[in-house]
Simulated scan of single mutants.
Amino acid sequence: MDIREIQNLIKFVSKSGATEVKLEMDDFKITIKTTPEGAESTTTYVQQMPVSQALPQAPAAQPQEPTAPSTPAELVNDDAKYITIKSPIIGTLYRKPAPDKAVFVEVGSTISKGDVVCVIEAMKLFNEIESEVSGKIVKILVDDSSPVEFDQPLFLVDPS
């Protein structure tokens, strides 16, 4: 289930008048609770990590996830004039080529088509993510060393 499907589920639940919905699948669990007025919704998204991965990563990811579904909805309204660079794969995003190196891009950096903006580690392979647009980075949407989903927004670029 990707971020858009989660957003659509939140919208559906808030419009339906239900106060609580729980969805459990093999690799994740989602609980959506709304107030009786339906004005606000809170989402808890917990992805169960495989046993072979280190456990300290899971608590760090859980507090960030509840805010993730509302962030893209706000971006569509506030930042519609910008171009979004999205993740082409699932993995862990790194903003630096190595721990002791500088980040690829910062807010305000000017990029050209083909410039590397980050790397995503997937199955022990580091994939360089290149920009498909030229412009100026106006917003970085993902923190360093964070897990990312396919088609998740990573950067906002002002093409002007």
Rank of each mutant, 00 (worst) to 15 (best):
S52W: 13
K96H: 12
P36L: 08
A73M: 14
V133P: 00
I140R: 07
K11E: 07
E149Y: 04
Y82Q: 08
D144H: 13
V13E: 10
S70L: 11
P159W: 01
P88D: 01
V46S: 03
A80R: 13
S146Y: 10
Q53Y: 11
T31N: 12
T44P: 00
L141C: 02
S109P: 02
Q53M: 15
A61S: 11
I111A: 02
P88R: 05
Q57N: 07
A102I: 02
A54R: 03
P66A: 03
G38Q: 13
A18V: 09
T84W: 06
V107M: 02
F28E: 10
A122S: 13
T43H: 01
V51I: 06
I90E: 10
L141F: 00
Q62I: 12
T34K: 13
F126P: 02
I3W: 08
K136T: 12
Q64M: 10
N127F: 03
I32H: 09
L93M: 13
E37A: 14
R95F: 03
I137N: 02
D115M: 04
K101I: 05
P59I: 11
A122Y: 06
D158H: 09
P153S: 14
E74N: 13
N8H: 04
T110A: 15
P66I: 04
I83V: 14
V103Y: 07
D100N: 14
Q57L: 09
E37W: 07
S109K: 06
V157K: 01
V13M: 08
I6G: 00
F126G: 07
T31D: 01
K81Q: 14
A60T: 11
V157E: 00
Q62C: 03
T92L: 05
D26F: 06
A61H: 06
I32C: 06
D151N: 15
S52L: 07
I85K: 04
I89N: 09
L93H: 09
P56C: 03
T92R: 13
A60R: 12
E128K: 12
E106F: 05
K86M: 03
I10M: 14
V119P: 01
